[in-house]
Design a protein around this nucleic acid. Structure first.
Lengths: 215, 215
DNA sequence: TGCTGTGAAACCGTTCACAGCT
DNA sequence: AGCTGTGAACGGTTTCACAGCA
């Protein structure tokens, strides 16, 4: 049973697995599968079944003993749990390759999110639109535009040196979560959820693993 | 002292911290800082100093008691440790927004890596180049071209449904590590280092954290 | 004195094993 | 019988605290 009081923040690992779980449930539902066991689910990700059950147990009881989990129901409850049952507005700072890639990504515009605006300093880009039609505004308009659009999530796809100023502008615009792709750690900001994702680190991770394997 | 025998694979968490550490050391070196303590370093990432020392202790002794770490020396030893002291060739499958963004990224073309080719199915793209000059070849040429370029790392920036075939083509081309950005888990492949990175999951993570904080 | 390197302790996440429900 | 939910055991990671060296 979940604690009704203050709950500790869910661990990164659990959060990640719940996302994968939801993805798998969507596939199963599309395939017309009605129920699924923790064992079946775990096998999809190379996990142990108890892991799946423990992750879910943090939030309540979801299954039926002797039967398993009803796919459609569990999927809906997970979406609700993760806050994906409503659409949050996303704005992206930096209309370079990466910013535009994210703006046009199907994955950034489905089930819980939609990209409402891009921002850039480059006057040649300002006023135009990304391939999928997201308007590019001048970076100086971030606070005002973010507020008008009721943006909740800001994405940083700008150079490292621009991060502090742009992050501040986003927060001024009322954004409550920031996803930072620049290769610099954006420190914690009060009342804002910050996540740093440096794509280079994934490559370095591969290099390191290759090195450890003697390649 | 590091074990001279078979070493357990370094944990994900340690790998990640070492990358951040290296990034910080590069900045410090550029600033002309000569030595730095584990405490100073830890403060940069909101970590504990013992964490830094323990991470490094996995690989040997790097510091000077009473003094700290010599920035330039530690940086060089870390680069060597992570296999970044040589340049590995990267090829990218999928010349869409994301693929081209990665191909042109300074971060994917510095200190240890360089992107040698892009591949796509779209005939209109084949034969042209990305903004920074990376040639786009037809996907059918992946095995041969990867081999000729001596590519060690393959990046998947293709739709989920194309992942299995393209991954196989990369492995046929001699690639020993794959970084998969498609929203589908690429299962382990023998003798290949696989890393799955779904950008959507980072957004979902933010959504989940917002939900937990009652936003 | 100051800071590293490291055993020991504390903490957290995973796996086991089984009670309990269908 | 089958599968969930969960206390207990386990294993790994982080933090503490201090010995040892410059």
């Amino acid at each position: 049973m979940p604690d009704e009081g203050v709950r500790a923040a869910t661990s990164e690992a659990t959060t990640h697995r719940l996302s994968l779980l939801l993805r798998a449930l969507r596939v199963l539902e599309a395939e017309g599968v009605g129920t699924v066991s923790s064992h079946d689910l775990a096998a999809r990700f190379g996990l142990h079944s108890a892991q799946i059950r423990k992750d879910l147990a943090l939030f309540g009881e979801f299954g039926v003993r002797g039967v398993g989990y009803r796919v459609a129901e569990l999927k809906d409850r997970l979406r609700n749990l993760m806050g994906l049952d409503r659409s949050r507005t996303v704005v992206i700072a930096g209309a370079g390759n990466l910013g535009q890639a994210l703006a046009d990504s199907r994955n950034f515009n489905s089930d819980g999110f939609h990209v409402a605006a891009l921002f850039d300093l480059d006057g040649r880009k300002v006023g135009s639109k990304s391939r999928s039609g997201v308007s590019i505004h001048h970076a100086s308009e971030i606070p005002q535009a973010a507020r008008e659009l009721k943006a909740e999530i800001g994405v940083l796809a700008v150079p490292a040196e621009a991060v502090p100023d742009v992050a501040r502008a986003l927060v001024d615009g009322g954004v409550v979560a920031i996803l930072n792709f620049a290769p610099v750690t954006l420190p914690a900001i009060e009342n804002v959820v910050v996540k740093n994702v440096d794509l280079t680190l994934f490559l370095e991770n591969l290099s390191f693993q290759l090195k450890e394997r003697g390649r």
